[in-house]
Amino acid sequence: MTLSARKQQLLEDFELLENWEEKYDYLIELGMDLPEMPPELKTDLNLVRGCQSSVWFDIRCEDHKIIFDADSDSLIVKGIVAVVNQLFNEQPAEDVLKADLSFFEEVGLWQHLSAQRGNGLLAMIAHLKKAATDCLSD
């Protein structure tokens, strides 16, 4: 699926959800479907610091594409990781770099999640974009 098709799918899913409890419930569900990250990849080096939760990203660059495993100790943050996974995993580094964050705004997550330092969403995106830059310069 292309990035825009993935976006569309997620948007449609989120549109069905009426309140925050349902959105979080869905995020948790998405997180549970996230492919398991091998424990040996959960190193300090791969730790993205959020204030209240830990997120691990192991990012590789193959064929100018960004490929990653990720996980979090928080179920909600893991759900956000799953959204990030659906949007960006195995995507061309160039697209990851260009990706705007309007998606999160459209599903109503951005305003809610970006203001809180606790979930590390901003740090996650910054982390991915840095990896994408490195990937392109290799």
């Binding site: 925050w20 409890e21 209240q52 939760s53 928080s74 909600i76 943050v77 979930n119």
Partner: peptide
């Protein structure tokens, strides 16, 4: 239960 999850979900209520 991760404390952040509990806080966020309580806020939803």
């Amino acid at each position: 239960v991760q404390h952040y999850d509990l806080g966020i979900l309580l806020d939803a209520r």
